[in-house]
Design a protein around this nucleic acid. Structure first.
Length: 219
DNA sequence: GCGACAG
DNA sequence: ATCTTGTCGC
């Protein structure tokens, strides 16, 4: 599939923040509410600079894998909370460009709107591909939230600067919640619904689990 | 001012 | 992210 070029690529923190501030205007918070091909994305780190990015596309109805691709690369950007996307984006875009099918939803490992400047990895990937995208985080990042109820499906809003930017969602009874936020072309209700549907067996959505496995054990 | 801070 | 064993539970 085609992905918009990453250029201009920032060389430092200030430039990276400026890129986020500029691209944020392109984010759309509404979109389709059903999907047929769902992609999970993840990156695995080896040593200091080497990374493997993996994308796994699942049939939305059966969750059967349709296509799997990996891309190897080197990380150039330092880890700065809020600029995390600049570490993983090049390898993830390489992997996406190797797909022969075009998914209609990207499930990203990280945040979308729930980000210091409202433009996390899921927003960035959504804008570059033009596809609906959502982010699933494993630990709280920005904003405040109450602990959701212990039952599967329970959720509470994540509020940042007076605005709801995501939800803490319990995907399995008695297991730590996950943190869902919109990336691009999706409503918060639809993002929540998809994550809950994709995470009935495990805490994290199946597409992300498949991608994580593939990135660790490329075949 | 200081610490905390997606992966 | 990663460095790491056993253990509890389905």
């Amino acid at each position: 599939m085609h992905v918009k070029p990453l250029h201009p690529w920032p060389s430092g923190v200030a430039e990276a923040e400026a890129v986020q501030d500029r691209l944020r205007a392109h984010v759309e918070l509404t979109g389709p509410d059903t999907f047929s091909l769902i992609a999970g994305l993840d990156v695995h780190y080896h040593g200091d600079e080497e990374v493997t990015a993996a994308v796994v596309v699942l049939d939305a109805a059966t969750l059967a894998p349709v296509e799997q691709v990996v891309a190897h690369g080197r990380v150039t950007f330092p880890y700065v909370p809020g600029l995390f996307a600049f570490r993983e984006l090049p390898a993830l875009v390489d992997a996406l460009e190797r797909l022969t099918v075009t998914p209609d939803l990207l499930v990203c490992d990280g945040y979308g709107l729930a980000h210091p400047r409202g433009f996390g990895l899921a927003c960035h990937l959504g804008v570059l591909t033009g596809l609906p995208a959502l982010g699933v985080g494993k630990t709280p990042f920005v904003g405040t939230h109450e602990t959701p109820g212990e039952e599967r499906g329970a959720w509470t809003p994540i509020v940042h600067e007076g605005v709801t930017v995501g939800r803490a969602l319990r995907t399995r009874a008695g297991v730590k919640p996950v943190y869902v936020s919109q990336g691009h072309r999706i409503s918060l209700d639809t993002a929540t619904e998809q994550v809950l549907r994709l995470a009935s067996r495990y805490r994290l959505p199946e597409p992300v689990r498949h991608a994580d496995h593939l990135a660790r054990h490329p075949s």
